[in-house]
């Protein structure tokens, strides 16, 4: 798993959970770090959505843009279809804890299990495992509330996450979670020894139907100044009616 921070954020964006449809709750009082993280994760659940977005991977040679359309239902079902030329027609289906890939040229379905889940999605900072949501952040990290801080003018909880084991990409992370909206405003990923590797910034959020969710996320590779990944949601419809059986193998292979 490459990018634990973006785990919830990115899973939502790319997988169609996009961006986490956060219900704006009343400000919390005296919450523990675990409760803040759990509340943040709980807010990712919503009824249905259809969204179109872009993932922009940047390095010193320029940008690679992947576009997608995602259908989602609740926290455990989504179907993402990539529409950009390089990966046109590739689809990812999540149904509960099962993840399937479809390659249209090969007409082949691959059920992702085990180590294959740790592979990167289109060379980005997102792993397939990030999209399964099978394990929560608290399963992999011990959380400690270490203070409060303003990020882009928003008050946030500052939470340190220390890995419980070695099967994670980053031994330590710091999350900045909005005190009012329970959305991550920023996160930092550290190597063993404390060197900063990556930063994730929420550049834009939007409100729709009572939900507040990020629409522009930037992941900066601090070790390579010119590298990074941006995720942008161009259009989202919430609470829409989805075609019957859309989260099925038949739809995956259509």
């Amino acid at each position: 798993m490459k990018h634990q921070t973006g785990r919830r954020i990115v899973a939502t964006v790319v997988a169609g959970l996009a961006a986490l449809l956060f219900v704006a709750p009343a400000p919390a009082q005296e919450l523990t770090a675990e409760e803040i993280i759990e509340r943040m994760e709980e807010n990712q659940t919503h009824s249905t959505s259809i969204m179109e977005g872009r993932m922009i991977i940047t390095d010193r040679f320029g940008e690679r843009v992947s576009t997608y359309i995602a259908h989602t239902e609740g926290a455990d079902r989504f179907l993402v279809e990539f529409t950009s030329r390089d990966e046109e027609g590739q689809r990812i289906l999540r149904r509960d804890d099962n993840l399937y890939l479809y390659y249209p040229d090969a007409r082949e379905v691959i059920r992702l299990q085990g180590s294959a889940l740790r592979d990167s999605l289109l060379g980005s900072d997102i792993s397939y495992e990030d999209m399964t949501g099978g394990r929560g952040i608290i399963d992999d990290y011990r959380a400690t509330l270490i203070g409060e801080e303003e990020v882009n003018g928003r008050p946030t909880y500052k939470i340190r996450l220390e890995a419980r084991g070695t099967n994670v990409a980053y031994p330590e992370q710091v999350y900045y979670v909005d005190r009012e909206e329970f959305v991550v405003r920023k996160s930092e990923q550290f190597a063993r020894g404390g060197r900063l590797l990556k930063e994730t910034l929420i550049l834009e959020t939007t409100e729709q139907d009572g939900y507040i969710f990020p629409t522009h996320i930037e992941v900066i590779d601090v070790t390579r100044g010119s590298s990074g990944t941006e995720m942008i949601i161009d259009d989202v419809q919430i609470g829409v009616s989805l075609p019957a059986n859309i989260f099925s193998l038949e739809e995956l292979t259509w």
Binding site: K2, G114, S115, A116, D119, A169, L197
Partner: peptide, 12 residues
């Protein structure tokens, strides 16, 4: 048989 190994945070 197939297995995917992660060798560091950016190498597989």
């Amino acid at each position: 048989g197939y297995n995917h190994f992660r060798l560091g945070y950016d190498t597989t």
